[in-house]
Amino acid sequence: MELEVRHLRALCAIADTGSLHRAARQLGVAQPSLSTQLRRIEQELGGELFTRERTGCRPTPLGRTVLGRARPLLAEMRTLVAEARAAAADEPQLRIGSTASRALAGWLRRLRVRRGEPLLQMDVSANALLNLVAEGRLDVAFVHEVEGCPLRVPDGLRLRVLVEREPQFVSLPHDHPAAGRPVVHLSDLAADRWMVDPTVDGEWDAVHRMLRAAGLNPRILHGDYHTAATLVATGEVVTVCQPTSPSRPEMAVRRLHGDPLGVRLLVAARTEAELDGVFPELAEAYWETARQAPAYREWLERVASQPLGPDAVAVC
């Protein structure tokens, strides 16, 4: 058996969903078929890639190694296919940059229907993406600006605000004492280790300010989003997260009391016409994602008095 792209997609789906059942549904296959496929992949590679537990599937050390190589390979394959299709159609391809967002999948799906397959470039640095737009290497960028850490916006860029202030929530282990409450005080997390991604523009400084303002000085570890999610699930750390992040059996997403940390969600382009061409689809995708996140939905409807119908607009 030789590993194929479909096998890598299956492994990433299992890791992303944390469940064979959910991964099978996402891939459009039967769960027994996916289980058989996983066993064959593990036999080919010579070891278990996931531990099967009552709460779901977690990557083993070997699994994390394989996933670390599989994700960029899949991203490169998607880019190759998209560029080839655009070249075959002799049509200009929309080039999008984005920082991490749960709304991204819905945005791309909507754009694909109207404008064909976009070319996507992800980056944790919003400033780097803005520079790529200014240089003409990207058409638009969807970025977040951490409160208190203004972005360096190049001259000539047009900005449009999707959400003026999106509160950041906290992700904590499901068995954490504070996970049983809908709103968590920072003082409830005084004894916990935190994880922060220092490569995200402004996040390190903002989290430090938030913790200092609460009189806390916890141990802070460095790590990316995937590492943080893994360590939260195993009870090692807590971390700030987007309010659209879903709770899972092994982790809980909760609102922080007083909403001490927020970000501004922005779309950047060189012209208003380019913004007009992508903004409606992004807004639809974002509010669709917000409706699917119970804790954020409650915050929007009760705290921000923000309706979440099909015509929802930005929170200001």
Results as ranks from 00 to 15, higher is better:
35 S>M: 02
97 G>Y: 06
63 G>A: 05
46 G>M: 02
97 G>W: 04
23 A>W: 07
46 G>K: 01
48 E>F: 01
36 T>D: 06
76 E>P: 00
54 R>G: 11
94 L>E: 04
93 Q>S: 10
49 L>Q: 04
35 S>D: 03
87 A>G: 03
92 P>K: 02
20 L>S: 02
39 R>G: 00
66 V>Y: 02
107 W>I: 09
24 A>T: 07
28 G>W: 06
103 A>N: 09
91 E>W: 04
104 L>V: 12
50 F>I: 00
65 T>M: 09
37 Q>R: 13
52 R>S: 08
30 A>S: 13
51 T>C: 03
57 C>V: 11
89 A>S: 14
96 I>G: 06
87 A>S: 13
42 E>C: 02
37 Q>A: 13
81 V>L: 11
62 L>M: 14
107 W>V: 14
86 A>G: 15
64 R>C: 10
71 R>D: 02
75 A>T: 12
92 P>D: 03
84 A>G: 15
70 A>T: 08
59 P>Q: 07
18 G>V: 09
52 R>N: 05
95 R>Y: 10
88 A>S: 12
97 G>S: 07
22 R>H: 13
48 E>G: 03
18 G>W: 07
45 L>Q: 01
66 V>C: 06
29 V>W: 03
32 P>W: 03
87 A>Q: 13
27 L>G: 08
43 Q>H: 10
63 G>E: 04
26 Q>L: 15
55 T>D: 14
97 G>E: 01
